[in-house]
Simulated assay, not measured.
Amino acid sequence: MRLEQLRVRGLRCLSDADLALGAGINVFIGDNGAGKTSVLEAAFLLSHARSFRSGAKEALLQRGAAGLSIFAELRHDDERRVRLGLGRNGSRWEARVDGESVAIGQLVRDCAVVCFEPGSHALIAGAAEERRRYLDWGVFHVEQLFLPAWRRYQRALKQRNSLLRSGDFITDALLEPWEAELTQAGSLIDAQRQAYLELLRPRLAAEVAELLPELGDIELRYKRGWGEGRELAEELRSQRGRDIARGHTTLGVHRADWSLAFERAPLREHLSRGQEKLTALACVLAQATLFAERRGEWPIVALDDLASELDATHQASVVRRLTAAGAQVLLTGTELPSALQSVPAQVFHVEQGTIAPLL
């Protein structure tokens, strides 16, 4: 799939950007703070309905702007075209597909963007929430039943947590229906996550062997969020006292995590920052590869500040890989990376939120 047109209004320093993108590599060069990353962020928002950058959602809005909007014309590899729109006024997001108002889930199912950026090492060294997001995005794009199960689970979790904070009024009879719903939806989510990780495992092993051969074989470990060999309903019942004391649900798929262990670096702490980045890149490329195999087309690949994140050898390897795959790439840098000197690319100059193609 590829974005042919991208229009951005009111996103950070991009007040009015209108781009015609190439099918292959698109490079955005300019000084730090010029707005390069915001272009990638706009594409990512269409795919995830959130930014890959940290900070409050309010920071997305250009200073003084009442709202922001992103519009894109997307072409799939089967030549199907889709018009996508995402807007925000105040705290409310609105999504459109081909001019019709839709749920956010329908919008992000049509557009798939994976991203490697300076904060990507958090996928390896950061909190479990980042790894769950990565995992659930992948499951969402291969399992039609994941989103309704996830919504059911989140609704039940919210209700149970509300009851846990209600003090003396809480009873087992009030908790049981929500625990039953958590168990049913959570068991489905857990099974889908484990199935996805089994599909991902060989792709990830291949990427790691290419990028980090010195670390040896990998082991992918998964923790589902409650005790192995026990039903979630049983665990929730046994933890009611602790959960009431803490005011929230301490077990379930919302507490799941996964990790990687290397033959020659069995603990996360054994990895250097550079190795964390390469491991994160391997995860991104493995997920993109699996998406392509299951959906018949590559997702759009965003690479933010590639030259500062990877050495020249790894830059060249990634560029060759994505060019051979025929993926559309959105890449930023303060100058044209050396790996692209002899590779066909459409280059844009970004300055103070203004974007112009370089001929």
Score class of each variant (00 low, 15 high):
Glu73Gly: 13
Leu74Pro: 05
Arg75Lys: 12
Arg75Asp: 00
His76Ser: 09
Asp78Met: 06
Glu79Gln: 15
Arg80Gly: 08
Arg80Glu: 12
Arg81Trp: 02
Arg81Lys: 12
Val82Leu: 14
Gly85Cys: 02
Gly85Ile: 02
Gly85Leu: 04
Gly87Leu: 05
Gly87Met: 03
Gly87Ile: 01
Arg88Ala: 07
Arg88Ile: 07
Asn89His: 14
Asn89Asp: 14
Ser91Phe: 11
Ser91Gly: 15
Ser91Thr: 15
Arg92Ala: 14
Glu94Ala: 13
Glu94Pro: 02
Ala95Ile: 02
Arg96Trp: 11
Val97Asn: 04
Val97Asp: 06
Asp98Asn: 15
Gly99His: 07
Gly99Lys: 05
Glu100Ile: 10
Val102Met: 06
Val102Ile: 11
Ala103Ile: 09
Ile104Ser: 14
Gln106Pro: 00
Leu107Val: 07
Val108His: 02
Cys111Arg: 00
Cys111Gln: 02
Ala112Asn: 08
Val113Ile: 07
Val114Cys: 03
Cys115Ile: 14
Phe116Ala: 01
Phe116Tyr: 06
Pro118Trp: 00
Ser120Asn: 02
Ser120Met: 01
Ser120Val: 02
Ser120Pro: 06
Ser120Phe: 01
Ala122Tyr: 10
Leu123Trp: 09
Ala125Trp: 00
Gly126Val: 04
Ala127Pro: 08
Ala128Glu: 10
Glu129Ile: 09
Glu129Phe: 05
Glu129Leu: 09
Glu130Ile: 07
Glu130Asn: 11
Glu130Ser: 11
Arg131Asp: 01
Arg132Lys: 07
Arg133Leu: 11
Arg133Val: 07
Tyr134Pro: 01
Tyr134Met: 14
Leu135Asp: 00
Trp137Ala: 14
Trp137Leu: 14
Val139Glu: 00
Val139Trp: 04
Phe140Ser: 06
Phe140Glu: 06
Gln144Trp: 09
Gln144Val: 11
Gln144Pro: 12
Leu145Asp: 15
Leu147Ile: 09
Pro148His: 08
Pro148Ile: 10
Ala149Cys: 13
Trp150Ala: 05
Arg151Phe: 10
Arg151Leu: 15
Arg151Ala: 11
Arg152Val: 02
Tyr153Asp: 00
Gln154Asn: 13
Gln154Ala: 13
Arg155Ser: 12
Arg155Pro: 00
Arg155Val: 12
Leu157Trp: 03
Leu157Arg: 06
Lys158Met: 05
Lys158Gly: 11
Arg160Leu: 02
Arg160Asn: 01
Asn161Cys: 05
Ser162Leu: 13
Leu164Glu: 04
Leu164Val: 07
Arg165Ile: 01
Ser166Asn: 04
Ser166Met: 06
Ser166Tyr: 03
Asp168His: 13
Asp168Gln: 14
Phe169Gln: 15
Ile170Leu: 15
Ile170Arg: 13
Ile170Phe: 15
Ile170Asn: 05
Thr171Leu: 08
Thr171Met: 08
Thr171His: 09
Asp172Asn: 13
Asp172Gly: 11
Glu176Val: 12
Pro177Glu: 08
Pro177Ala: 11
Pro177Asp: 07
Glu179Val: 04
Glu179Pro: 02
Ala180Arg: 15
Glu181His: 09
Glu181Phe: 04
Leu182His: 04
Gln184Ser: 14
Ala185Glu: 05
Ala185Cys: 09
Gly186Leu: 08
Leu188Pro: 03
Ile189Phe: 03
Ile189Asn: 01
Ile189Trp: 01
Asp190His: 12
Asp190Ile: 01
Asp190Lys: 13
Asp190Trp: 11
Ala191Ser: 14
Ala191Lys: 14
Gln194Tyr: 09
Gln194Cys: 10
Ala195Asp: 14
Tyr196Gly: 05
